[in-house]
Design a protein around this nucleic acid. Structure first.
Length: 417
RNA sequence: GCGGAGUUGGUGAAGUGGUUAACACGGUAGAUUGUGGCUCUAUUAUGCGUGGGUUCGACUCCCACACUUCGCCCCA
């Protein structure tokens, strides 16, 4: 048997239903916020990700799907959404009118060569937004609240936004220096991984799992105290706006995001009950420029649809929603089938959700199927009535059965569902 | 890339080196001369992740691989 590649999954059953539900919610929601839909390729030149994410990080050296195409080009399956959108912005000169704030959203699959775990796949789906050309904390608040409100709209109620500021370059350098000075005398008390991180990625030590309870980490310098005036102002403004907008947020000075390109305000959406991060984002005011575009501020987030589906399922428990249909059409003989197909099409074209037996089943089985589909009405075709131009229709709730004229069927159904 | 646990019908699962792989749900057919949801009866895995090996004999033991899951690294 051929099996699916590691870390992928088939979207079927309840998961597929939830995905459809989320997808529709996204389109509706984004229309109200007046964000434009953008779709960029699933694969891009490898260089794009190397330059955006950082040349030396593990992410790019061993956690992307890279290959050479037949034209000997270096190609990478996109591991995230931001780089492609920024590339498109630059290539298509979408920033033509420099007064506009440009707002985009995307939904699509991403590919990461990682070891699968709970809620971590090699093919994953992300919904994200990117906003260009506004540097005002007001827009930070809009973007953060957009994600938060969207999750609420999906009825994922218990989510808190964890916010932090990484400041500008100067703030980060100052903080990193202070952090390293603080940790240096205690280095041998940290876990082996953290001892390595001390040189490679000191900020990551802040959210180390092994040293979580370590006293040393509890008293670590606070990045927020090392922010420059400007960075601090941005962060304070953001908090004011979030309070104004009634967003549940929490300041988390130990929140660091993995990418080099973030500046200033960063955040994650974290569920309250089990602490799952369903998404996160940050401001990245230098990425557009670094990828060859104009100097242009930007901010965005990504939400993991796969994780959201998992969280929604936890909430649903056994209350699996059933899509009830309006009409189930039962038929046995050849002449009944001919009629059934015709009626089914007619009803469907009139927005009546209809299903028709197509398996030569006994009436008993057809009744069962109709019940499982939650049909409101059953059309039970029979040869004798058909000859008289009558259709036998049964209300599945009251069990009442009436015969109505063929010509009046559609109107009758529309009037009664 | 590293480590732990797992993989038995459509589903939930029990099970043993030896002939017929339990039980339940679900499905199908019948009792019901075309009108179900209750009940009863029959039937429903030529196969126990895949490929090798040991054995007279393997679903059961051994090896490899795949996939799942939990954790590490990493987390865009």
């Amino acid at each position: 048997m051929i099996t699916k590649p590691k870390g992928t999954y088939d979207l079927i059953g309840i998961d597929a239903k939830l995905y459809n539900y989320i997808e529709n919610a996204i389109y509706n929601f984004m229309t109200n916020y007046n964000y434009e839909y953008i779709r960029t390729p699933i694969f891009e030149a490898s260089e794009l990700f190397h330059r955006s994410v950082g040349e030396d990080t593990d992410i790019v050296t061993k956690e992307t799907y890279d290959f050479k195409d037949r034209g000997d080009r270096n190609i990478t399956l996109r591991p995230e959404g931001t780089a492609g959108v920024v590339r498109s912005l630059i290539e298509n000169k979408l920033y033509g009118n420099r007064n506009d704030t440009l707002k985009y959203y995307y939904l699509g699959t991403m590919y990461r060569y990682e070891r699968p775990q709970a809620g971590r796949f090699r093919e994953l789906t992300q919904f994200g937004v990117e906003v260009f050309n506004s540097d005002d904390p007001m827009i930070d608040a809009e973007v953060i609240s957009l994600g938060f409100n969207f999750l609420k709209d999906l009825s994922l109620e218990n989510v808190t936004v964890h916010i932090n500021s990484l400041g500008d370059k100067e703030s980060r350098e100052n903080f990193t220096k202070a952090l390293k000075n603080y940790l240096k005398p205690h280095l041998n008390e940290l876990c082996p991984d953290c001892q390595k991180r001390y040189d490679t990625n000191p900020l990551r030590i802040l959210d180390c799992k092994a040293d979580k309870d370590n006293e040393i980490l509890k008293n670590v310098p606070n990045i927020l105290e090392y922010l420059t005036e400007e960075s601090k102002n941005r962060f304070n403004k953001l908090k004011e706006y979030l309070t104004l907008l009634d967003i549940d947020y929490e300041i988390d000075a130990k929140l660091v995001r993995g990418l080099d390109y973030y500046d200033y305000n960063v955040w994650e959406y974290i569920t309250d009950d089990d602490g799952v991060t369903v998404g996160g984002g940050g401001r990245y005011n230098h990425l557009v420029e670094n990828l060859g575009g104009p100097q242009m501020p930007a901010i965005g987030f990504g939400l993991g649809i796969d994780r959201i589906i998992i969280e929604l399922k936890k909430k649903l428990e056994d209350k699996v929603p059933v899509n009830n249909i309006d009409v189930y059409i039962m038929c046995v003989s050849e002449e009944e089938k001919i009629q059934a197909v015709k009626i089914a099409q007619e009803l469907r074209l009139n927005n009546v959700i209809s299903e028709v037996n197509s398996n030569n089943l006994s009436l008993k089985s057809q009744f069962k199927i109709a019940d499982n589909l939650g049909a409101k009405f059953l059309i039970i075709l029979n040869g004798e009535d058909l000859k008289k131009g009558l259709i036998n229709i049964k209300d599945n709730a009251t069990k009442e059965e009436i015969r109505i004229d063929e010509a009046e069927l559609v109107d009758w159904v529309i009037g009664n569902i």
